[in-house]
Simulated assay, not measured.
Amino acid sequence: MAATLTLETTAYTLDQLLALSDAQIALAGRSNVGKSSLINALAGRKKLAKVSATPGKTRSVNFYRVEPQHFYLVDLPGYGYARASHEERRNWAKLLEHYLSDCKTLKALALLLDCRLPPQKIDLELASFARACRLPLLPVLTKTDKCKQRERALRQREWHDLLAVRPLLTSSSSRLGMEELWRALIEIAVPGIADADSAPATSE
């Protein structure tokens, strides 16, 4: 099923985050997990989401419109960046918690995880909070092109054991897993619409 991705709006406050009525799937991960690169790979465009050389630079929440399925991918600020001030980290955490717990149209949390790293406490804490909010989890391993097959399989087993959900393997540079990820996102946002026999296409 074809899907296009465009940046529709940017939010900075909780009221702005909760203003949209269509279905949403949040994308969250550590500040250097490769979230912007993944969004660009999903869109089939190089500069839709700005990729910064400085981890943790993004302060806003970006809403990307998915058409014709009529839902949003919501790019949340990266977390865990050590150079951010304590006040900044506290404000980000508060905004994230309120959004995950209060947004009525939020269908799931896509948790982005660096395939090169063993499970990190901060990722597990976010997964636990999402579960407490009764949000389904879609774990996504990023940067798998930088790992050998054995390491990929190990990470999948580790996270499956912790979350009881098998993570998807993805790579923004090689486009590994993009079609599978699109199908999973669409099926979560609009249950029953995704055709397993048709791969989503991307366009400018």
Rank of each mutant, 00 (worst) to 15 (best):
E8M: 13
T9R: 14
T9I: 12
T10M: 11
T10D: 04
T10F: 06
T10V: 15
Y12A: 09
Y12P: 03
Y12K: 14
T13W: 11
L14K: 07
L14H: 08
D15S: 13
D15T: 13
Q16M: 07
L17M: 14
D22R: 15
D22E: 15
Q24P: 02
Q24L: 06
A26C: 13
A26D: 03
L27K: 09
A28E: 07
A28I: 14
A28N: 09
G29E: 02
G29H: 11
G29M: 10
G29Q: 10
S31R: 08
G34F: 09
K35Q: 01
L38V: 03
L38G: 00
A41Q: 05
L42T: 00
A43P: 07
A43W: 04
A43Y: 09
G44P: 05
K47W: 01
L48G: 03
A49C: 06
K50H: 15
S52H: 12
S52K: 13
S52P: 12
A53W: 08
T54C: 09
G56A: 12
G56H: 12
N62L: 08
E67K: 12
E67F: 02
Q69M: 07
Q69V: 06
Q69F: 13
H70E: 14
H70P: 00
H70M: 10
F71S: 00
L73Q: 05
L73A: 00
D75W: 08
L76F: 04
L76S: 02
P77N: 07
P77M: 05
G78D: 00
Y79H: 10
G80S: 13
R83C: 01
R83E: 10
A84H: 10
S85L: 10
E87Y: 11
R90G: 01
R90T: 15
W92G: 00
A93E: 15
A93F: 11
A93R: 15
A93Y: 10
L96S: 06
L96V: 05
E97Y: 12
Y99D: 00
L100N: 11
L100Q: 08
D102R: 14
K104C: 03
A108D: 04
L109Q: 07
L109M: 12
L109G: 01
A110H: 05
A110T: 05
L111R: 07
L111P: 00
L112W: 05
D114V: 09
D114F: 13
D114G: 07
C115L: 08
